[in-house]
């Protein structure tokens, strides 16, 4: 019974994080900021939700942990791949951005 309550709290926290992630996806001005708010918040939300399910059903905990570890390992890789692809396909940074060291670096590399 107590496990059920704890698991439900974890699931609700995860749901709130996933909701906030997609809200960030909608509100932010350019691809990079959208990724900042969404790809990572959704990782934490997914981990929290799946852990909640594992706590409610202790027999499923090992498999749930396996899914959590898999999400933890793969999500940053895909975020990095999308980010670099976005930069290389020429998506501009938001005009309010402060600095762009990567663009300077790519220009230097081209000239050299």
């Amino acid at each position: 019974m107590i496990g059920k309550v704890i698991g439900e709290i974890f699931m609700i926290i995860g749901g709130i994080f996933m909701f906030l992630a997609s809200l960030g996806l909608l509100r932010m001005p350019d691809v990079y900021n959208r990724m900042q708010t969404s790809t990572k918040a959704v990782t934490l939300g997914a981990m929290s939700s799946i852990l909640g399910v594992g706590i409610i059903h202790p027999a499923w905990l090992p498999k749930c942990l396996l899914i959590i570890i898999f999400i933890l390992f793969t999500n940053p890789v895909s975020a990095h791949a999308i980010g670099r692809a976005a930069y290389r396909t020429g998506v501009k940074l938001w005009p309010g951005s402060k600095c762009d060291k990567y663009g300077e670096y790519l220009k230097e590399e081209e000239n050299a």
Partner: peptide
């Protein structure tokens, strides 16, 4: 770095 929101590694 990528997993902590607010920063992500481009390259």
């Amino acid at each position: 770095i990528t997993l902590t929101p607010g920063t992500f590694t481009l390259d």
